[in-house]
């Protein structure tokens, strides 16, 4: 049985004027780490809220653990863990008090499921008397995860857990998710960071309320249809402008220290000369594998 199944759900706001989620379907297998990848305003939070029974879909149906998100909301609320996008714990309670409170609300105790959160909790335990409002971004996130896990949920919904968190904490967070997955918990996570997509088992790329593609990160990258080139020069801005004006360019954009570009007929034999003639130096052109971000950019075009 699938852990999550979404069938053609649509969600609008302001009496139908704003379409947040537009006919979205996908499913997530038991024990899968599933990523919803897309920018702010793509509809990620609306999907999360419908799956956690907080919002009603306008159209379509969805199930979590086989329970309908509308009819069986009580069962779903008993069995899932949810970490909303914003830090949603009590800032004026300490780490310990927050954890105990949520354990009680979920009708369990910290001791009962301590094994689940142990790995994460030991990292923040030295500060357990500190109020949540005084914690660093990374620590808040760990506490929030502990609170979402304390009742041993079957499925974990994490809405943008790493937004605004520095790269080191982000990396640690994903390692924690990996370990949770090994314990058999289904995890659905959303993120605006493309580089985190490769850490998921499967991902859905989403933009403007529509799903652009659902697949494993590898498949998404492998099905990139064009040959992709990475081009480097000493003068970055000039390079970008020159690539844009090059007649054979079909798409070009900055990508780290390189510019990535695809060309009509996949022909780059003349490119080097063209770039030199425009005054660029230190030119380097290489054929590369696409990344998730490249795929996303292509899908957006």
């Amino acid at each position: 049985m699938e852990a999550i199944r979404v069938n053609h759900i649509t969600k609008t706001y302001n009496e139908g004027k704003v379409k947040a989620v537009d006919d979205v379907s996908f499913s997530v297998g038991k024990g899968e780490l599933f990523g919803l990848i897309g920018p702010d305003g793509a509809g990620k939070t609306s999907i999360f809220r419908m799956l956690t029974t907080l919002l009603l879909p306008d159209k379509g149906t969805a199930t979590v653990d086989g329970f309908d998100v509308v009819k069986d909301f009580r069962q779903i609320r008993n069995s899932v863990g949810y970490m909303p996008g914003k830090f949603s714990l009590y800032q004026d309670l300490t780490i310990e008090e927050n954890l105990n409170f949520f354990a009680t609300v979920f009708d369990t105790t910290v001791e009962q499921n301590y094994h689940l959160i142990k790995d994460i909790y030991v990292q923040i335990e030295p500060f357990k008397k500190r109020r949540a409002g005084k914690l660093s971004g990374g620590m808040k996130q760990k506490l929030a995860l502990c609170c979402a896990l304390i009742h041993k949920p079957t499925t974990l919904f994490l809405d943008e857990p790493t937004t605004g968190v520095d790269p080191v904490s982000r990396k640690e967070f994903w390692e924690m998710l990996r370990r949770l997955k090994e314990q058999g918990i289904t995890i659905m996570v959303s993120t605006p960071y493309m580089d985190e997509a490769s850490l998921c088992d499967r991902i859905a790329l989403i933009q403007g309320g529509k799903i652009l593609s659902v697949d494993t990160p590898d498949n998404i990258v492998n099905t990139y249809p064009d040959r992709l080139y990475a081009i480097k020069a000493n003068e970055m801005y000039l390079l970008l402008k020159t690539l844009e004006s090059y007649p054979d360019t079909s798409n070009s954009y900055a990508f780290g220290e390189y510019a990535h570009a695809t060309f009509k007929n996949n022909d780059v034999s003349e490119l080097d000369n063209y770039l030199s003639s425009k005054g660029l130096s230190g030119i380097e052109i290489k054929d590369i594998e696409a990344t998730i971000e490249d795929s996303f950019i292509r899908l957006l075009h």
């Binding site: 920018p39 605004g164 605006p192 933009q207 954009y253 950019i297």
Partner: peptide, 12 residues
């Protein structure tokens, strides 16, 4: 942090 949460195309 001018580009937090912005899609890759707009970011560029």
């Amino acid at each position: 942090e001018p580009t937090g949460g912005v899609d890759p195309v707009t970011r560029r």
